[in-house]
């Protein structure tokens, strides 16, 4: 469009610059070990909070241990936190002028979102590992063998990566780290509005419809299935609940197809 470089060279710089920028995110984390500790403590807190505090009062439909029921929901939660994490970082760079500096340099335009989402994928893997470790300690385990287990984790990672592009776009649109910080608390209700912590059967019909179509419910249902955890399907499931694996794939592809071009356009747009 505006650059005179040939395409192969552009691709090479997108990858090289993307890796440089992902490295920057990792270096930032290393410089702030407290952040890593806090991030890793999060799964433990969630397991204790939901598994023991709420779990004592919640009946699993079809019977079974609540913590076995809960863990797929918490894995799903790890997928969604990518949105807020990446949004916050993109908005911070935009509001502090760092993004303008990148844009005025020969740096490949798309390297910035690729670097952010790449670094976020690594962070997500760390979080997932901590969550799995905590789960194993409190008695959760996969029951359906290596292939199904691997499939479940791949779906979780895929959805997280797709969600991180939603974060890129939101961050570029918001452009202000304070606004981004104010948006973060909104993600908790979105998380709660799903089957992650409680069965949706008891919700009012309209709310249940929303919850059943929440991507978070799809990944939770898919992981429950693939791990062989309790939480049997209800009698008249909505489509995503009847086909959770297909729903996760669909949600992920849809998020990528919509938000990668949107984010790319927002990143390369020159207006203000």
């Amino acid at each position: 469009m505006t650059t005179a470089r040939p395409a192969p060279q552009r691709l090479r710089w997108t990858i090289t610059d993307g890796l440089t920028l992902a490295g920057r995110e990792i270096a930032r984390l290393k410089a702030e070990p407290g952040q890593i500790v806090a991030a890793l403590a999060f799964p433990v807190v969630m397991v204790v909070l939901f598994g023991y505090v709420f779990g004592s009062a919640i009946q699993v439909p079809g019977g079974g241990d609540y913590r076995e029921y809960l863990m797929p929901g918490l894995f799903a939660m790890v997928s969604i936190t990518a949105v807020q994490g990446v949004m916050t970082r993109m908005a911070a760079d935009a509001s502090q002028g760092v993004m303008d500096r990148f844009r005025s340099m020969p740096t490949a335009r798309l390297a910035v979102p690729f670097g952010q989402t790449g670094a976020d994928a690594l962070v997500g893997l760390g979080l997932l590992a901590a969550m799995v470790g905590t789960g194993l300690i409190v008695g959760w385990q996969p029951h359906r063998g290596a292939a199904a287990t691997a499939e479940a984790f791949l779906l979780i990672v895929l959805l997280r990566y797709a969600m991180s592009w939603v974060g890129v776009y939101l961050g570029l649109v918001v452009k202000d780290d304070q606004t981004a910080a104010q948006l973060v608390p909104l993600f908790l209700p979105i998380t709660m509005l799903s089957n992650a912590f409680v069965p949706t059967d008891g919700m009012p019909a309209w709310l249940r419809l929303v919850a059943d179509w929440n991507p978070l419910s799809a990944i939770t249902a898919a992981s429950r299935d693939l791990f062989g955890n309790p939480g049997a399907r209800s009698a008249h499931p909505a489509w995503p609940m009847a086909h959770p694996v297909a729903a996760v794939l669909l949600w992920s592809v849809a998020a990528l197809v919509v938000f990668v071009p949107l984010a790319a356009r927002a990143q390369t747009r020159r207006g203000r």
Binding site: R24, R28, Q96, G97, V98, S104
Partner: peptide, 15 residues
């Protein structure tokens, strides 16, 4: 070109 805008556009978290 080099651009130094109205912000100190450096990463506070890094050295």
């Amino acid at each position: 070109i080099g651009l130094a805008g109205q912000f100190a556009a450096v990463d506070g978290q890094l050295t």
